[in-house]
């Protein structure tokens, strides 16, 4: 299967004359679990909607499963499952009724719709509560119903728009685990649009980063991580002392609140950190391998496809807001 799952060429979408949601985007996406990462307003939702044929592009081309989004929208939508970002469930229907109704609308015969609904709701982890009205569900349960309706017709490709939105940490873990299973066990290609890079690192195999409607990077996840190792050493007190000691050992370090960030480009830091903390007798809270934050990606932002973009040592790095809230169409 050499054909790309999704092929996007020079795709541009403008709303009116002032807002540009996508700006000449060109990228190929292969099967697997692909993270579509960008800040709010980067064009993720717009891209998903164009791929579904829900809205038309201003210019450029895109194919999904080798079908042109402009002319074969109906065929694409029959084979693709879509989980929107916003609420999309009627509160007065039960999960069973709603999901099987959606299965019918997807073209499944009545008996098959009922069977698949029971099966899919079991897979997403909804049991007795599936007969109750959705209005009384928790956010986590609603997200599961949204996922179930996208999965009920056994799509070849699943498009998930911010699937962990509004979930607490446990709910988030469960949702990510579910996405991982869908991609790895169910054999369904998944595209996850998110502004949280950390989530993709946990489940994804490939990453497509966009910003301002342009491609920042598209690469296997491994490449992102390999080049960006940072070790965060968090101590209750004495982070300056630790920083000085590690700097004296010849590591390139930076301070981030109580944490000391150490570049792990070579294999040495682990031993050095252990020794330093032990020698200084510091109360160690945690040692954690930190990965690329979204804003780091944007910092390298040369819009060159698949460039392994050499990443300098983690020099003075300010604490940047985790969620660069940028307005615009989403």
């Amino acid at each position: 299967m050499g054909v790309a799952l999704i092929s996007i060429r020079n795709l541009t979408k403008r709303y009116g004359s002032s807002i540009t949601a996508l700006d000449g985007l060109t990228v190929d996406i292969e099967p697997g679990i692909v993270g579509l990462v960008g800040s709010n307003g980067a064009g993720k939702s717009t891209l998903l909607k164009i791929l579904l044929g829900l809205i038309g592009a201003t210019s450029g081309e895109a194919t999904v499963l080798d079908l042109d989004v402009r002319t074969r929208g109906t065929d694409i939508r029959q084979r693709v499952g879509y989980m929107p970002e916003h609420d999309c469930l009627p509160p007065d229907a039960s999960a069973t009724d709603f999901v099987s109704h959606m299965a019918l609308i997807s073209g499944l015969p009545r008996t098959a719709a009922r069977e698949r609904t029971a099966e899919v709701l079991r897979h997403v982890g909804l049991y007795e509560e599936r007969y109750r009205a959705i209005g009384g569900y928790s956010t986590g349960m609603k997200q599961r119903v949204k996922l179930a309706q996208a999965l009920v017709h056994d799509p070849v490709l699943l498009l998930l728009d911010e699937p962990t939105n509004g979930l607490d940490p446990t709910g988030r873990d469960e949702m990510l685990e579910l996405i991982h299973r869908i991609g790895a066990e169910f054999g369904i290609a998944v595209i996850v649009a998110t502004h949280l890079l950390g989530e993709i690192e946990r489940v994804g195999s490939h990453l497509v980063a966009i910003e301002g409607g342009k491609l920042l990077r598209s690469a296997p996840l491994g490449e992102f991580i390999e080049h960006t190792g940072t070790l965060a050493v968090e101590v209750d007190e004495g982070s300056e002392t630790l920083a000085e000691r590690l700097a004296a050992d010849g590591l390139s370090i930076a301070l981030d609140g109580r944490a000391v960030l150490v570049d792990v480009a070579d294999g040495r830091p682990y031993d050095l950190v252990r020794d330093a903390v032990a020698d200084l007798g510091l109360p160690l809270v945690r040692i954690e391998r930190r990965r690329h934050r979204l804003e780091d990606l944007f910092r390298d932002a040369a819009p060159v496809p698949a460039g392994p973009a050499g990443h300098g040592p983690a020099a003075a790095r300010d604490q940047v807001g985790v969620d660069p809230a940028v307005g615009g169409p989403s």
Partner: peptide, 18 residues
Amino acid sequence: GRDQRHGVLALYFARALR
């Protein structure tokens, strides 16, 4: 009204239905 209020429209339009 229900379909619009609760965003269900997006799910209908994301299917084979025109």
